[in-house]
Design a protein around this nucleic acid. Structure first.
Lengths: 230, 230
DNA sequence: CGTCGCATTGACCGATTTCAACGCTAGTGG
DNA sequence: CCACTAGCGTTGAAATCGGTCAATGCGACG
């Protein structure tokens, strides 16, 4: 893991891509690299939100819970995504590593100041936040109006586009970074329903499940069809 | 409806609150007042997103639909809220008036330029977008993990805080701007379930339903309790 | 080999949907 | 003035999707 921003693996895709070399030096000074093991939590909902970060490698989940412990995953973060919530004293959501993770962490307050001093970065964050809002709303449609089968199909396509490289037309394989329980928490279902829907899709030949977390998209078009209609 | 920004009903609460009088003049020039009747649509999902706006009076809904016509309302907008999606060519959601509405409308492109020239406004939009994202995610928890009763109770409390004036401790009455069908589309339920849950809350004395759209919060605390636990 | 965590499968149950009837209110036109 | 209709809301009965509970399978790891 390099300690120099200019050699960063997500240099051009992350928010920092908006900075020139000189500005990067400033950021370099306030940022700190950090690793999280699978399962570790960076931020706890309800506690003070101390940090922001850029995600370098791995996958994070953003989750909310009811008072009695039901959990809903409200977002997944991938490399180059911005992590955290500037301008909020208290964290609304927990942020937890689904895989081992590398982050470039900033103290939130310091980062907020940096934002104000680097308009282009602020602008980029605005665009990303707007995009995240669109995505969240798309997921509201999924949660509120889609059937279990549609949810699972949509989820698999989503994962494929994030993990299976740039959208290939035909087959694609990838290793799910989530357990069935976590998938259930993304989709607002139970473990059992997720499992049943996946075996159904497998039986119907749309996907393959060679082993535990491995998934192969066999017929992307049919899958897309199931993600939309009843 | 005044045509001068400085006399605007939402002058201080809207995005424009970040502008000084001189800057307001610039915006005054590009903005145009517009009324929508209940049921009229400002933006259609899938079409080019031509406008942004500030909402002056009334309530708007933001909605997404599946290919086969199921609808999910993904947001409600109240006076002083910002309307539209800068930096997107195509609208992801339809924007429709739930009541008669007054707007201050800007051509999207022009508004984007204005944003870039007025950093304080851009900054304010960033904060609002971050807040909207938090809200969307809270609603994801509701859609994915709450029961019908919890959804309806949460919804009523939400409406009360928006329409019943600043959060009074005891009773509060308001006129719902939504039909039962629209409430169902907000909560990811059916009309019938919404109706049944509301009569249940009424039977139990937590709310009153004097006539069609009128609602009285009788016991806010009990209602809050039902919004959270099973 | 035993255990632990995760995944699958089956049987049953129940909350919510679906389908259908009915009621209320407001507007309309005879 | 009063049927008559249209739109919205309520209520009931039946069906269903997904949840719950419980058993089993399967690998990895000590």
């Amino acid at each position: 893991m390099s300690t120099v921003c200019s050699e960063c693996v997500v240099r051009d895709q992350s928010l920092c891509g908006s900075l020139n070399d000189e500005e990067l030096l400033t950021l370099n000074r306030i940022g700190r690299q950090r690793r999280l093991a699978r399962g570790e939590t960076l931020v706890w909902a309800g506690e003070e939100a101390v940090v922001c970060a850029n995600l370098l490698t791995g996958v994070l989940k953003l989750s909310a819970t009811t008072a009695d412990g039901r959990e809903q995953i409200v977002g997944l973060l991938y490399p180059a995504d911005f992590v955290g919530r500037p301008f909020a004293e208290e964290a609304e959501h927990s942020i937890t590593a689904l895989t081992d993770v590398e982050l470039c962490v900033f103290p939130r307050k310091t980062f907020e100041t940096a934002l104000e001093n680097h308009v282009r970065m602020e602008r980029l964050l605005l665009r990303r936040t707007l995009a995240a809002l669109d995505e969240a709303r798309a997921r509201m449609l999924l949660l509120g109006r889609k059937t279990a089968e549609e949810k699972v199909a949509s989820f698999l396509l989503d994962m494929a586009s994030h993990l299976g490289g740039p959208c290939k037309p035909g087959e694609a394989s990838f290793d799910l970074p989530l357990t069935r329980a976590q998938i259930a928490d993304v989709l607002g279902l139970t473990i059992e329903t997720v499992s049943r829907q996946m075996t159904k899709l497998k039986r119907d030949g749309l996907i393959g499940l060679p082993s535990g977390r491995m998934v192969t998209i066999r017929d992307r078009q049919a899958l897309q069809h199931r993600a939309e209609a009843a």
